[in-house]
Amino acid sequence: MGKTADLTAVQKAIIDTLKQEGKTQKDISERIGCSQSAVSRHLSGKSVGRKKCGRKRCTTRRGDRTLRKIVEKDRFQTLGDLRKQWTESGVETSRATVYRRVQEMGYRCRIPQVKPLLNQKQRQKRLTWSTEKQHWTVAQWSKVLFSDESKFCMSFGNQGARVWRKTGQREMPKCLKSSVKYPQSVMVWGAMSAAGVGPLCLIKGKVNAASYQEILEHFIPPSAEKLYGDEDFIFQHDLAPAHSAKTTGKWFTDHGITVLNWPANSPDLNPVENLWDIVKRNLRDKRPNTLDELKAAIEASWASITPQQCHRLTASMPRRTEAVISAKGFPTKY
């Protein structure tokens, strides 16, 4: 312990006491276990510790507050944009300093989540709907048969496996990831309740009112039988044109099925969306290479979804409605 900075407040107090008792610096250093030079520096008043090292901070707190306002005004600006606006406000600095300051403020550059664009009317309808359903219990939500369509492509974007290559191997065939302009895809329809998932429908062609009614005709009865038996249920779907068609509404009336009113652009309120995410994550691991492999992988992943997973998602509905109310109709984390 030769450095003055190593002395604690207690050690310094002991040094002062022992000095008053007439002890020598050597005796004191041996008594408290530090070097004699440390005792000497403390007694001579030089024990002020090390001076701060490194460059002096080039921005002021006021300047940093200005940067925070610039960042919060538009979260999608680049470092170059932030630096330009900060310079225009009177703070001349480098990109590196801008980066350090926004890091110090707790900001991190991340890929933004994609959420539906909601206008004021849609937000109000979401808020009204959530307020009406705010006190629904999990038992009530368990009576709802949630449904949705989703598209699965052979291409999985930038996610998935990376490639190990050396300099100069960028164009080597073994190091290339194949892509096509219009990747093959599969459209599917599925339904779930708190009891599990119903049979999955692989859709051929585009979904219009007529084809959608065929899906309902062939897949609602087995889904209802599996998940509800003889009990009544409420059917949920979004406001896609095929769903909102008058002929589709007549189909439900003719079959005596109650349809849950639903706010537009609200995938965060539909737990089936979470099931699609589960299926797509599984596909990224399996990496199907043909359309048949893609279809088989989708069906296998859907079939592997457990009733426990579906029950947890259904049980989240009260939290989802609360989240919409808290967000005043704006998109939520779900």
Rank of each mutant, 00 (worst) to 15 (best):
L275Y: 00
P221C: 04
E293V: 01
R61Q: 14
F146K: 01
S94E: 09
H42A: 03
S244Q: 11
G157L: 06
L176F: 03
M154F: 11
G229N: 10
S94Y: 09
C153E: 14
R101Q: 10
L202V: 15
T247E: 13
T128Y: 10
C201T: 02
L82F: 09
L200E: 06
A242P: 07
R123K: 15
D254R: 05
V102A: 08
S29I: 00
P318M: 00
V48P: 01
S142Q: 08
L117P: 00
V48K: 14
S301A: 15
K181S: 15
A13I: 01
Y334N: 01
I298L: 03
G54P: 07
R110C: 12
H218G: 03
E92L: 12
N270L: 06
N270S: 09
N274W: 02
H255V: 03
A195F: 07
I234K: 02
M172E: 14
G190R: 00
T248Y: 03
S44F: 02
T59W: 05
K125R: 14
L67Y: 08
L43H: 10
E231S: 14
Y99V: 01
I220E: 01
G168W: 11
H237N: 14
S147V: 00
N265P: 01
T66I: 13
G54M: 04
N270R: 00
Y99M: 12
R31N: 09
V98S: 02
R57Y: 06
T253H: 11
Q134I: 02
G190W: 01
W129E: 02
G22K: 01
K226A: 14
G90A: 11
Q213R: 15
L291W: 09
Q308Y: 11
K151Y: 10
W302G: 04
K84C: 11
A296M: 11
G249D: 08
K125Q: 13
Q169K: 10
K115P: 04
R83K: 15
Q213T: 04
T17D: 06
S155F: 15
P241K: 02
D81F: 04
K84S: 13
N289A: 13
V102E: 07
K51E: 10
R165G: 09
M192T: 03
G160V: 04
E149Q: 08
S266E: 04
F235H: 04
Q122P: 06
K250N: 13
K125E: 09
V114R: 15
Q134L: 15
C310S: 03
V10M: 08
F219L: 02
G80M: 02
R31Y: 13
I14L: 11
K56H: 12
L117Q: 11
D238V: 01
I215S: 01
I234G: 03
R162V: 12
N208H: 08
F235G: 00
D277Y: 05
H311Y: 14
C201W: 01
D230C: 07
E104M: 11
N282Y: 04
V98T: 10
H237Y: 07
T290Q: 11
D74Y: 09
K328F: 06
H311A: 10
S266K: 01
